[in-house]
Simulated scan of single mutants.
Amino acid sequence: MADPNHIVTVNIVTPDGVVYDHHGNLVIVNAIDGDIGIMASHEPIIAPIKISEVRVKRTDDPHHEDAIAVNGGFLEFSNDLVSIVANSAERARDIDLRRAQYQKQKAEETIKTAEEKHNVDDLARAQVSLRKAMNRINVSSHK
C-alpha cells in the first residue's frame, strides 16, 4: 500500500534530454487504459501513455502541482522512481501559447481539407497534431 509520507522521484525524458526531474507525493498519468495515480511504494508498473497531461504534486509545497504536456510514450515505476520516456514533453511554464493555438488552427484546417479530399493519411496525422496542440493549450493554463 502507498505511503503518502514517502516521496517518489519523477523523471521525464525525451530524445532532447531531461524535461522534468523532481520529487513528488503523487503522480497522475493518463495511460492507454485510463488514469494511473502513483505514490511511494506502489507496485511496479510499465504502461504506455497517451498524449496527455502529467501532474505531479510536489513535496516542497503541498499546494503546488506541476503540469507537463507529454505527447505519448511510456511510464515505468519501480523502487519509488517514476520514469517517463516520451517523444516530446513541455512543462506548463515553457509552453508558447500563441504557437500552440496556431498549431491547433493549422491542424483544424488540415482536417477540414483532408475530409473534403477523403485523404485518410493526412486526416490521421492532422488529428494527432490537433490532440498535441490541445494538450499543450490545456496544460499551459496551469502556469
Rank of each mutant, 00 (worst) to 15 (best):
M1G: 15
A2Q: 15
A2T: 13
A2Y: 06
P4C: 08
H6F: 10
I7W: 09
V8T: 01
V8N: 01
V8D: 00
V10A: 01
N11Q: 13
I12N: 03
I12Q: 01
I12L: 05
V13N: 00
V13R: 04
T14N: 09
V18M: 13
V18R: 06
Y20N: 07
Y20L: 10
D21C: 05
D21F: 11
D21Q: 13
H22D: 11
H23F: 15
N25T: 13
L26I: 08
I28N: 07
I28S: 14
V29A: 03
V29R: 01
A31L: 02
I32W: 04
G34V: 05
G34S: 08
I36T: 03
G37Q: 09
G37P: 01
S41Y: 11
S41P: 04
H42G: 05
H42L: 06
I45N: 02
A47M: 03
P48V: 07
P48L: 09
P48T: 10
I49F: 00
K50D: 13
I51K: 00
S52D: 03
E53G: 03
R55Q: 15
V56S: 04
K57M: 09
T59R: 07
D60T: 12
D60V: 07
D60S: 12
H63R: 13
H64V: 10
E65P: 03
E65K: 12
E65T: 15
G73W: 00
E76A: 13
E76N: 12
F77Q: 02
S78V: 08
N79C: 05
L81W: 04
S83G: 08
S83R: 13
I84K: 02
V85P: 02
V85M: 14
S88Y: 06
E90W: 06
E90D: 14
R91Y: 07
R93Q: 15
R93A: 14
I95V: 08
I95H: 01
I95F: 01
D96T: 07
R98K: 12
R99K: 14
R99V: 04
R99Y: 07
A100M: 02
A100T: 02
Q103P: 00
Q105M: 11
K106V: 10
K106Y: 04
K106R: 10
A107L: 06
A107T: 02
A107R: 00
A107M: 07
E108W: 08
E108Y: 04
T110I: 09
T110W: 04
I111Q: 03
K112D: 14
E115S: 09
V120Q: 11
V120E: 13
V120F: 07
D122R: 15
D122Q: 14
L123D: 03
L123E: 06
L123Y: 11
A124F: 11
R125N: 12
A126H: 02
A126G: 00
A126E: 00
V128Y: 02
S129Y: 02
L130T: 03
R131H: 10
A133L: 08
N138R: 12
N138V: 05
V139M: 07
S140I: 08
S141H: 14
H142I: 06
